[in-house]
Design a protein around this nucleic acid. Structure first.
Lengths: 196, 196
DNA sequence: GCTGAAACCATTATAAG
DNA sequence: CTTATAATGGTTTCAGC
């Protein structure tokens, strides 16, 4: 596992939400300068964490047909090859190869199209069994849980957006939504210390 | 199905390849001006074809654990609800609900984590059966096939760029790289019809 | 990882087809 | 109504520290 700090994770999360977001905006939110964001993103691409900047497209608006989940049970050892072939077919969006010799693919097809998809991508002699299930819904969650995501002000509990205040006390970082809350917190801290 | 012209599809294709690509570059490639690209993208977002600009992240670099495909067979009517719950869990990237009452989810988990994922997202009383399969590989293909991208002339096989000819015969659309090829094709068609 | 300067880009308003 | 042009305001990148 690659070493990523909180800044990296926050950048990833913000870009996953909107990959066209300006680096300067990201810089503000994560508390670094724009060039630093640029450097981090370059590094994340280099080490392979970011595979590409892309789009989430609603394919149901693009092509006629219905969403299906195809499960193909193959003879042993062919799952990766078949998965890659299937992934290359236009109507196939996702393909998974499992250790028990199955390939599961999500595609949008016309009813008549499904068999040609299979024969086009798969040596049918290698298919032990397959089934096609109609999809009623699907979700893709590109979001990752960053470390400081939805950070709440330690004093009032509000979500901290722009204009937050960060202070370091006894080596620990504390974040507040405003300097007012920061002051309140420090008064609390005194009270706590005294009662201890 | 929404009406999209070739320009829209080309823009989508280019953005799917790299969503941070400058609009001016896209404008050059598809032969319009940058403001036009901007307008088209706005429209594609409005009508829901573009759901979001996002990232393709290699999660294996982000978290320990193995990729699994979980297939849950539920009591009828619960598939969409369960799918949505599962999609909200951090380690779940994709979730599909099928018409036959299954939910299939792709997740990255520690071996010990899988049961807590299930119980967290699913009312286990609704599960008829489930299995967890180890993944060996997976692919996501955000690419879409643009309309004229690599379309071959039906007569000579050459790639059709600007200046192609489209004709409609018996309700079917045919595309040619030039009017010469279109004429040749029509002669062929006569021959075929006569021999039939 | 930051600063500042220069190059670059997206967007707006405006004009033309 | 759609597209192009030009100007502006903002963004990214590159040096240098």
């Amino acid at each position: 596992m690659v070493e990523l700090d909180d800044t990296d994770l926050n950048i990833l999360e913000l870009l996953a939400e909107d990959s066209r977001r300006p680096y300067s905006e990201i810089a503000d939110k994560v508390g670094v300068s724009p060039p630093t964001v640029s450097d981090r993103v370059d590094r994340l691409e280099e080490i392979g964490v970011i595979e590409r900047f892309t789009l989430d497209i609603d394919r149901s608006t693009l092509r006629d047909g219905v969403g299906v989940l195809v499960d193909i049970h193959l003879q042993p050892g062919f799952e990766t090859e078949v998965m890659e072939n299937l992934a290359g077919v236009e109507c196939v969006e996702h393909a998974f190869a499992t250790a028990d010799g199955h390939v599961v693919a999500k595609a949008t097809v016309d009813e008549t199209e499904i068999h040609s998809v299979l024969t086009q991508a798969v040596d049918t002699g290698r298919i032990v069994e397959y089934d096609v299930r109609l999809l009623v819904d699907s979700a893709w969650e590109p979001q990752i849980d960053g470390p400081d995501v939805g950070v709440a002000c330690e004093e009032c509990g509000a979500t901290i957006d722009d204009g937050g205040v960060t202070v370091e006390v006894d080596g620990q970082t504390h974040e507040f939504c405003s300097s007012t809350c920061r002051t309140s917190y420090e008064e609390h801290l005194e009270t706590i210390k005294q009662s201890a």
